[in-house]
């Protein structure tokens, strides 16, 4: 059954270009949709398309582990959190009349175009030492090995960063109940004042 894998490699050689353009043609409109869709919650859901497309690009680049991580963390985790935040900050589900700030549209488009052209020139001007030999299929092993040897310190820092972010996000997003005693005193004073005023009004 050696022909099967042969066929697969043959197909991937010719197909890679077309698949790349297919994915790009899907991803870029999704990305614009995220920015320009009037319905902000739908824009949040469109993020899945962008992240899924990028995950497909990673698969084309033979980075299977990263593609799966991208799918799990971005396309599901972060998108869901974003969508829920959108629902919380837009409780009446209104549509944006204009998603972008009108005065900044033209300058931003100009700057964007120039930035893109500049980046493209920079990309072309560099002679990349191209090395298109295939990645070893078990690059997940190499990643795991390097993460725990050469990159052990950044790996640990990443875990600490995540812990801090977790605690910080919970603290920031937590609803402030009237916990401190000063708050409670303040409220009591206010209610007392209001009730006194009311009594005064009633007397008059």
């Amino acid at each position: 059954m050696g022909d099967l894998s042969e066929l697969a490699t043959l197909a991937s050689k010719h197909m890679e270009t077309w698949l790349f353009y297919l994915v790009a043609l899907i991803t870029v409109p999704f990305a614009f949709g995220v920015l320009l869709d009037r319905n902000i919650i739908r824009a949040g859901f469109l993020l899945i398309g962008v992240f899924g497309g990028i995950s497909a690009l990673f698969l084309l680049l033979q980075a299977q582990f990263l593609a799966m991580a991208q799918l799990m963390i971005y396309a599901v985790g972060i998108t869901l959190v974003v969508v829920i935040a959108l629902m919380l900050t837009n409780p009446r589900m209104e549509e944006d009349k204009s998603p972008s700030i009108p005065a900044q549209k033209a300058p931003a488009a100009l700057v964007g175009t120039l930035l893109f052209i500049a980046l493209y020139m920079a990309i072309l001007s560099e002679g990349w030492g191209n090395n298109s030999e295939a990645l070893s299929p078990d690059n997940i092993t190499i990643i795991g090995y390097s993460l725990l040897t050469h990159y052990a310190l950044p790996f640990e820092f990443a875990s600490i960063l995540l812990l801090i972010a977790l605690v910080g996000a919970v603290m920031l997003a937590k609803h402030d109940h009237f916990n401190s005693k000063a708050d409670i005193d303040e409220i009591e004073e206010e209610t007392k004042e209001i009730s006194e005023r009311n009594e005064h009004v009633v007397k008059v």
Binding site: T27, V34, A43, G44, S100, G112, L115
Partner: peptide, 25 residues
């Protein structure tokens, strides 16, 4: 080039978006 295009789209969205969550996106 594709990455540069997506980056530029991100820059455009970050500078023009009205909604703070959209800026984060």
């Amino acid at each position: 080039t594709l990455s540069a295009l997506l980056f530029t789209i991100g820059v455009y969205g970050m500078t023009t978006s009205r909604n703070a969550v959209r800026v984060l996106m």
